[in-house]
């Protein structure tokens, strides 16, 4: 009997944000498609190789209607990579994934045919970002099924993080209650991020892109205050009292 020595390699997961064009269809869709055609008339194929997200917050569409709309856009050489603002489409395998927390930049006009031919893809650069807060404070418990994502910095939770809840921070994570769900610190690629919690019962602990699951946590450390950090590509955990 042979046994395969399986060196557990930590999988790498990194979050990254990109720019995409957001289309916001307005009811009635038929008229909106006509307007789109009129705009595309001037620069055909402009969106052919560009990422487009569909913001459905202005319309109420069933999954099948969304599929139909996406097919209509594909006929126009527009490929939809994600959907925004339409709750309840999660789990619909045929639809693109749901996007959240999109931030608007300025809108732009389609380039005129002449300029489009001469200088393709000159999109206005995003405006210089305003200084943003680097920490997020949550005073309530984070409940099962809720997901708190703050790529810009640290997250502090005063309550507990329930089983099945998820905290994703670009910086460190501080939980002053029990941490029962998933905590992902340093999600934007910060190996110096740490996780601190008053009571560790977590389902998953990750820093940068290295993770530990509940089975990897030593019994002697569970249900105690703990600190989790990254050292040489390994997630380390130690008690804090």
């Amino acid at each position: 009997m042979s046994s395969v020595v399986c060196q557990r390699q930590s999988l790498m997961f990194r979050a990254r944000s990109y720019m995409a064009f957001a289309f916001t269809p307005q009811p009635p869709i038929v008229d909106w498609l006509k307007d789109l055609d009129a705009a595309l008339e001037r620069s055909k194929g402009f969106f052919a190789d560009r990422p487009v997200a569909l913001d459905l917050s202005a319309v109420q569409l069933s999954p099948s209607a969304i599929t139909h709309l996406i097919a209509n856009l594909e006929e126009r050489n527009i490929r939809v990579l994600g959907i925004e603002g339409s709750a309840g489409i999660e789990g619909q395998a045929r639809l693109p994934p749901l996007l959240r927390n999109g931030r608007g930049t300025q809108s732009f006009e389609l380039p005129k045919p002449s300029s489009a031919a001469a200088a393709p893809a000159v999109v206005n650069p995003p405006p210089p970002p305003k200084p943003q807060p680097t920490s997020l404070l949550i005073e309530e418990p984070v409940r099962s099924g809720q997901s708190v994502v703050f790529i810009e910095g640290d997250i502090t939770v005063l309550g507990s993080v329930g089983s099945g809840a998820e905290i994703v921070a670009g910086g460190s994570i501080h939980v002053y209650g029990a941490l029962r769900g998933r905590a992902i610190a340093g999600a934007a690629g910060n190996p110096r991020a740490r996780i601190f919690c008053h009571r560790v019962e977590a389902e998953l602990l990750a820093i940068d892109c290295y993770y530990k699951t509940v089975d990897d946590i030593d019994d002697s450390l569970r249900r105690r205050p703990a600190q989790i950090w990254l050292e040489g590509g390994t997630v380390k955990i130690s008690a804090m009292n």
Partner: peptide, 16 residues
């Protein structure tokens, strides 16, 4: 029991 409690936690999140 744990499954009921976790589902209740989810519902409380929805109520909020």
């Amino acid at each position: 029991e744990v499954s009921s409690v976790r589902d209740s936690d989810r519902i409380i999140g929805l109520l909020d």
